[in-house]
Amino acid sequence: MSRELARYLATRFGQLLLIVFVAVSINFIIPRLLPGDPVQTALARLQATGGAQNVDIQAVSAAYRAKYGLDAPILEQYINYWFDLFRLDLGVSFANFPEKVSTMIGNALPWSVTLLAVATLIAFATGSLLGARLAWPTAGRGIKAFVPLMMILTSIPFYLLAIILIYFFAVVLKWFPPAGGVDTTRIMRLDWATTEDILRHAFLPCLAIVLGNVGFWALGMRSQMVSVLGEDYITFAEAKGLPPRRIFVWYGMRNALLAQVTALALSLGSVVSGAVLVEVIFNYPGLGSLLYVAIRGQDYFVIQGVVLMLIVSLAVLLFLVDLIYPLLDPRIRR
C-alpha cells in the first residue's frame, strides 16, 4: 500500500467519523432545543391520544429521569449520551415499554440490510450490463426496445410501482404474499421451509426496488458507455485485433463503471429512502416500517434511534464505496 493510498483511506475514514459525530450530536441537541421536558411532553401527548394506556407512566418517566439525568448540566448529559451509545443503549420504546430501542433496531436491521443490499446489487448489475449492451454498436432491435421501458420505469414513482406489483402478483394472481417478512404463524428455524417462506415474502419488495432502480442504472451506463466507446483507447483496442467481448468488458465496461460507482455513492441516500417507502407499503419488518410505526405512534426514542441508524449506515456505505473506488480507478490510488 502506497503512502498516497494510506492518506486517501485515512481521509475517508476521518470523513466517516466526522459524519457520525455530527449526526450523533444533532440527534442529541434537537430534542433538547424543544421547550420543556421531552419525555414529559412525549408522554403527555401519548396519553392524550390514548396511545399509552397500558403503560405505567410513572415508571417510564422515572426510568428516563434516571437514565438521562435531565437535570444535570448539558455537557454531562452529552457525555453520558455518548457513553450510552457505546453501550448501544438508545433508550426504551414508549409504545412497547420496556422494550429497548436497540433490540428493536437489531431485529429490524437484518431484514432491511439483506433486502436492500440484494435488491440494489441486482438492480445495479443488471442495469449496468443492460446499459452497456445498449451502447454497443451491435445492439439489436430487441434489446433497444428496453430503452423506452427503462425510461417509463424510472419515471414511475416507487410506491405506485409497489402497489401495481401487489395488485397483480399478490391480489390477482396470488403468487406471492402481499405483505410481511414471513408467515405470521411460522416458527423461525434454520430450514428450507423457513428460507422459502422468507424468500417468497421478499420477492415482491425486492422486485419493486429492482424495477424502480434498474432504469436509472441502465440509462446512466448507456450514456457512460457511449462516451467511453468514443475514446481513442477503444479504437486502439480494435486496431490490436482484440475479440469484441474483451473490448466490451475490459476496455468499455471497465471504464464506464467508474462513473457508475460514483453515481452509486451519490444516490445511496435516495436508494435508502426509497427502500423505507417500499418496506412501509409491503409492511416489511425492516427499519423503514419500524420508523413509520414509530412516527405514527410518536414513539420518540425509536424515531431518534432509527434516524441515527440510517445516517450512520449511509455514512458507512459511502465509506465502503470510497474503499472500492481506488480498486477500480488506478488514478485515485497513486
Partner: peptide, 16 residues
Amino acid sequence: IALIPQGAMSSLNPVM
C-alpha cells in the same frame, strides 16, 4: 497491419 493512432496519448486504457 498496425495503427499508431493520432492521439496515442489517449490510446492506452487508463485502468490497465
